[in-house]
């Protein structure tokens, strides 16, 4: 029973891995970035657990900076992911006027990744302005 469970887990893990291998590279980069941000936040939390939260605002800034940028990265990933049909359909209404104006609807249906990236950069800059202000 235990062996089969181990095998099943192994099989599950394996299938997950193979499924993930099919993910496009740019999404993998974003995933890696999220992991980087969250683990940095985790290290800071660990530091606080060890030592104490004395400069509490600094601690908050550090952790929130990481969490915030991770969330923004996740948002970026949602927008960039081509398989997110639902997200695209929603956007369709926004672009309807462009469809009416005769531009190829098919081409516009893909949200430009660059636009999402610009949002990501802008949001990160605003976030870090606040973070730096709060850092003290």
């Amino acid at each position: 029973m235990a062996r089969s469970t181990g095998k099943d887990a192994q099989a599950l893990f394996h299938s997950l891995r193979s499924a993930y291998a099919a993910t496009p590279t740019n999404l993998k980069i974003i995933d890696l970035y999220v992991v980087f941000a969250v683990s940095t936040a985790f290290i800071q939390v660990a530091y606080m657990a060890f030592v104490g939260s004395f400069p509490f605002n600094s601690f908050l800034s550090g952790v929130l900076s990481c969490i915030g940028t991770a969330v923004l990265a996740v948002c970026l990933r949602i927008q960039v992911n081509k398989e997110n049909k639902e997200f695209k359909l929603k956007l369709e209404s926004i672009y309807r006027h462009k469809v009416l104006s005769g531009i190829s609807a098919d081409a516009e249906r893909d949200l430009p990744a660059e636009r999402a990236f610009a949002d990501f950069v802008l949001c990160n800059l605003v976030l870090h302005l606040v973070i730096i202000n709060f850092l003290g």
Binding site: Y33, I43, A46, V51
Partner: peptide
């Protein structure tokens, strides 16, 4: 201790860069 943790916070960054190379 504080310096050690400062070094530790760079570890994910390094991991990130290595991950990028791997990809």
């Amino acid at each position: 201790l504080s310096l050690a943790f400062l070094g530790l916070t760079f570890v994910p960054l390094v991991g990130f860069l290595i991950g990028l190379l791997c990809l």
